[in-house]
Amino acid sequence: MVKQSNKTTSQIIRIKGDKIITTEDFLVREVPITLFLNDKEFVTMVCSPQAVEELAIGFLCSEGLLQSLDEIKNIWYDEENGIVYLDAPGIEAESKFLKRNITSCCGRGRPVFYFVNDAKSMNKVTTDLMITPGMVWDLSDRLEEMSTLFQETGGVHNAALCTPTEVVYFYEDVGRHNAVDKIFGRSFLDKIPLEDKILVFSGRISSEIVIKIGKMGLPVIISRSAPTDLGLEMAKQLGITVIGFAKGEKMNVYTYPERILG
């Protein structure tokens, strides 16, 4: 099966000062993907059309529905119709999750319970991981270098799972939550330990992103953007080091600075 491209082109009129030209420009592709869980329509996600199975699994993990790889009996992607089928007979999804449509925008819908309840039910992250400012800047620079789709379209977010010196996984998606879920899904499938890993991210560090990081058990998140106040409150509860505005040789360390070696 040929994987769908994450980008396409469109004819545009470009105006710069008094110059007007007709040209083509790259656009990021955005598609709806419907997840059928145990033969029942479960949720529709709007995303970039690659690593769709990882997205579906990561989404279920981040919602607390998938706990073990053994729970997945089968998964397959019907690319033509935009449907992911996942068989996990042990999941009682309807009693734990309110069916809703998920958009790629920042205002992603949630049930009436909020993330604070999620945070209170999670274990605090513990780790021996220590990193230097130089490692932070290097990983941030690597994320930017790898973000070729963003450079061409300006329309995606990027996320990378890293050790202090290497990139393990890298994903791009129109939705910043989706990019993190793809990381979650791939690491879940590969059964890799996460207590010594770092998430490097292009988007703002909101409460929802922090909850996802906490559920993964990651001790550090590095972003080229800013955190929110609720995101930091939850990071303090969950034991997560939050680093924002990591660009060039600058960064802000908001929580647990003891993990950043002087």
Score class of each variant (00 low, 15 high):
Val2Gln: 12
Lys3Val: 11
Gln4His: 11
Gln4Trp: 05
Ser5Gly: 00
Thr9Gln: 11
Ile15Gln: 12
Val28Ser: 10
Pro32Trp: 10
Thr34Arg: 12
Asp39Trp: 11
Glu41Gln: 14
Thr44Asn: 04
Cys47Glu: 09
Cys47Met: 07
Leu55Gly: 04
Ala56Lys: 06
Glu63His: 06
Asp70Met: 08
Asp70Pro: 03
Glu71His: 02
Tyr77Glu: 07
Asp78Met: 01
Glu79Asn: 09
Glu80Arg: 11
Gly82Glu: 02
Val84Arg: 05
Pro89Gln: 03
Glu94Trp: 04
Glu94Pro: 05
Glu94Ser: 14
Phe97Cys: 02
Arg108Leu: 11
Arg110Glu: 15
Pro111Ile: 01
Val112Thr: 12
Val116His: 06
Asn117Ile: 09
Asn117Phe: 14
Lys124Gly: 05
Val125Leu: 03
Thr126Ala: 07
Thr127Asp: 04
Thr132Ala: 00
Trp137Asn: 13
Asp138Trp: 15
Met146Thr: 07
Met146Pro: 01
Thr148Asp: 09
Gly155Tyr: 00
Val156Trp: 00
Val156Gly: 00
Phe170Tyr: 11
Gly175Cys: 08
His177Gly: 07
Asn178Gly: 14
Asp181Gln: 07
Ser187Phe: 02
Asp190Ser: 08
Asp190Ile: 00
Ile192Asn: 08
Pro193Arg: 01
Leu194Lys: 00
Arg204Ala: 06
Ile205Gly: 07
Ile209Asp: 02
Ile211Leu: 07
Ile211Trp: 00
Met216Gln: 07
Pro219Tyr: 02
Ile221Met: 01
Pro227Asp: 10
Leu232Cys: 13
Ala235Cys: 06
Gln237Glu: 14
Ile243Met: 10
Asn252Arg: 10
Val253Phe: 03
Ile260Glu: 13
Gly262Phe: 03
